[in-house]
Design a protein around this nucleic acid. Structure first.
Length: 195
DNA sequence: CTGACGATTCACT
DNA sequence: GTGAATCGTCAGC
């Protein structure tokens, strides 16, 4: 079941970040279908969130996607090298997003290995937001792509997982965000707890 | 136009 | 644990 618009319109982005654990992110670029089970997310809660690119209502060409419709990909370049993939949530004018930080490879593993230049499946294939995008073939030029389209979407495959095993911790790499660096906005589950 | 910087990764030690 | 790689974005001139 492909997730539909109401899932992304939830105004509680922490809830969406929590709910995305165990869902399956799928990409279909150039006839190569690849997917992974989401096992780590971070919530970025809009203009009041010091760690968000949209903090203080900052609208630029790059962040404009987050201010628009939910159910859209916000992808941006980090450190000049890595495309980081986010799910835009909430409603227009509320620039909330969820960063996908780690997935468990699911389908199209051979294609993901090739994109990453690996020759065997290890936990390094998709650990970290930059490598998730690289494995799935997502580039920052894909920012603005709708999850109701045919290139990128998220499915509920009814993956079995124990929700009590989901850990909540502060977000990674946001020390610049002052007191907001410690907010418990990161959700993670050990891939051993996924079937 | 210019310069500083980052929601990171990887190879090394 | 440490440090280099690398370039679009954005603020400021």
């Amino acid at each position: 079941m492909k997730l539909q618009l109401p899932f992304y319109q939830n105004e509680n982005t922490l809830e969406i970040a929590h709910n995305l654990i165990g869902k399956v992110i799928v990409t279909n670029f150039g006839n190569a279908k690849t997917s992974g089970i989401i096992i780590e997310t971070e919530a970025y809660t809009g203009i009041v969130d010091k760690a968000s690119h949209a903090y203080n209502n900052k609208r630029t060409a790059r962040t404009e996607v987050m201010f628009g419709n939910p159910g859209i990909a916000y992808v941006y370049l980090c450190y000049g090298i890595h495309s980081l993939f986010n799910v835009v949530t909430n409603k227009p004018g509320e620039p909330h997003a969820v960063l996908i930080r780690n997935i468990k490879p699911y389908k199209g593993i051979a294609q993901m290995l090739q994109r990453r230049g690996h020759n065997k499946l290890t936990n390094k294939l998709t650990t970290g937001p930059g490598t998730v995008s690289q494995a799935l073939g997502i580039h920052y030029s894909n920012s603005g792509e709708s999850f109701l389209g045919s290139k990128i979407w998220i499915e509920d495959c009814h993956i079995q997982l124990d929700k009590t095993k989901i850990k909540v911790t502060p977000r990674i790499g946001v020390s610049y965000a002052g007191d907001h660096a410690l907010l418990p906005y990161r959700f993670v589950i050990n891939s051993n707890n996924i079937n």
